[in-house]
């Protein structure tokens, strides 16, 4: 996924560049040694309890019946889709402004996970909407803006792959990530600014949740489980990417003396 750059550093000792380049990644690898298993364990426990509770022990809704159980999937996916994109935008800023070495790598790994999460949000929404509203899909403001978010994720993934020089791909993707942040407030406020079929948010900062605790509790468990799961996936992918890059660098370093002596 990450194409290694093979540009030789003229006049610089390979050893120094190697150490300098992996100063931060090395720290991340040491962090991920305990963080990754911890996140996986947390996520597994919370999801196991939360999803079983949601599917089998939570009450049916008075108007939606059992279809309300889809909410326990749809709402966390929707929140994570927006949060993931916000993280992509932060990585974009870190990459463009501070030139943080890990920011590009993180953006490469977050994009596909975020895209899958957004696709799940749209899919579960369709499965929820058909029995409730009577339609698989409508072009109201909330659904359309989340679809736009999905295409932003796809565009981000595509931009990284599109260039021969990976640096240009990272930079274009960072620009897209920052520009697309506009969509996030649109998603959030679409149900209050315009008349939409999608109902307003049940859980906001301004009013009490319009949901009893018998539903709020399993929803919170699922939310924590999916959020830590997202973090676990991204941490693991980032760890794999750093290891892959390190292996690629070792191969390149080993091949160079052979080619120079030839």
């Amino acid at each position: 996924m990450t194409k290694a750059t093979h540009q030789p550093l003229s006049g610089r000792p390979a050893q120094g560049a190697f150490l300098h380049r992996f100063a931060n990644p090395g720290r991340f690898l040491r962090l991920s040694r305990w963080l990754f298993p911890a996140l996986c364990a947390f996520s597994g426990v919370f999801l196991a309890i939360g999803l079983v509770w949601a599917l089998l022990f939570s009450p049916a809704d008075w108007q939606q019946g059992d279809a309300v159980r889809i909410m326990y999937l749809h709402v966390p996916m929707a929140i994570l889709a927006s949060a993931g994109y916000a993280t992509l935008a932060v990585c974009g800023v870190l990459s463009l402004v501070w030139k943080h070495p890990l920011a590009d790598l993180a953006a490469v790994e977050i994009g596909p996970v975020g895209a899958v999460v957004t696709a799940l949000c749209l899919l579960t929404g369709a499965f929820w909407g058909k029995p409730m509203w009577g339609a698989w899909w409508v072009w109201d403001a909330r659904l359309t803006s989340v679809l736009v978010l999905f295409f932003l994720y796809l565009g981000h993934i595509a931009l990284i792959q599109a260039f021969d020089d990976p640096q240009r791909g990272y930079r274009a993707a960072a620009v897209l990530a920052i520009a697309g942040v506009i969509d996030l407030p649109i998603i959030k406020f679409s149900v209050t600014w315009w008349n939409t079929l999608h109902q307003p948010d049940s859980i906001t900062l301004t009013h009490a949740p319009t949901m009893p605790s018998s539903m709020l509790l399993p929803l919170s468990l699922c939310m924590i489980g999916f959020a830590t799961g997202f973090a676990a996936l991204v941490t693991g992918r980032l760890k794999a990417a750093i290891i892959e890059t390190r292996a690629q660098q070792m191969l390149t370093r080993r091949a160079r003396p052979l080619s120079e002596s030839a």
Binding site: L51, L55, F57, A60, A67, I70, L120, F127
Partner: peptide, 16 residues
């Protein structure tokens, strides 16, 4: 509660 209303949609969502 074993879901009996709209269970195909629930199964499809959790399955996906």
């Amino acid at each position: 509660h074993i879901a009996y209303t709209h269970w195909p949609y629930i199964a499809a969502s959790y399955g996906c």
